[in-house]
Design a protein around this nucleic acid. Structure first.
Lengths: 111, 111
DNA sequence: TTCACCTGTAACAAATTTCTTACACATGAA
DNA sequence: TTCATGTGTAAGAAATTTGTTACAGGTGAA
């Protein structure tokens, strides 16, 4: 896949992965798709907490969720990993930095 | 270089890069070593703030700093990037997750 | 001495992230 | 109906992160 996301997108992806629980979530999903209640038991965290972390990962585009109906009519939300592939080096970051939205500090660009 | 850091180390590196200002710092250092007061002016942030972010990056092993003496005897702290090279994919994270220090949730490992 | 540089850090406010508890809703089976 | 399963979300506490301001020290040059 080897995407080159915008600087802000890259920071969002890194932030999404900068948490041990979220790394565990991705690691779990790497073995196959799963629904949230099952994952919560598997990993050993509360469902609301897992729900929050899943949203963070999905917002970053690292996983995607789809609401499906099981055979017995229960609504179940399945998540799976997207095919992300990031290369993190100093020069890759230098490239990404070019497309970062300007911070409050970029306003004296005149001297 | 292509290191395979421990799960916790990887999370620390990702956390260190999960901030736009720190990405800018690495991007600046990718162009060559620099000392903190100069970088602070270059990037447009206060020196204490830069100091804090540099420590975060150095703690993660992404940059290294050395205190040197300039010709006129001033103490100057130079930083430069280390040769880090991370590959971030779902399976790489699954591998890293194996070496994460156990969270509070890993204590009912009996059923 | 005073000024222009360089370093470090402590104290505190503000914003964000992380997590728990509690609630609301749905379905099928006993 | 009640229980067990699934979904979502809101409210608030606790911890961490981010940032400012202010202070401490040093050197060389005018």
């Amino acid at each position: 896949m080897t995407d080159q996301p915008t600087g802000d997108d890259l920071v969002e992806m890194l932030a999404a992965l900068a948490n041990p629980l979220r790394v565990r979530i991705v690691a779990t999903l790497a073995k196959g798709r799963d629904y949230v209640s099952h994952m919560a038991r598997e990993i050993g965290v509360s469902r609301p907490l897992l729900h929050m972390h899943l949203q963070r990962l999905e917002a970053a585009g690292l996983i995607v969720g789809t609401l499906e109906l099981s055979e017995d009519g229960k609504a179940m939300k399945f998540y799976e990993v997207t095919g992300f592939d990031l290369r993190i080096t100093a020069s890759a970051l230098a490239e990404a930095a070019k497309t970062l939205s300007p911070s409050e500090a970029q306003k004296e660009r005149s001297s």
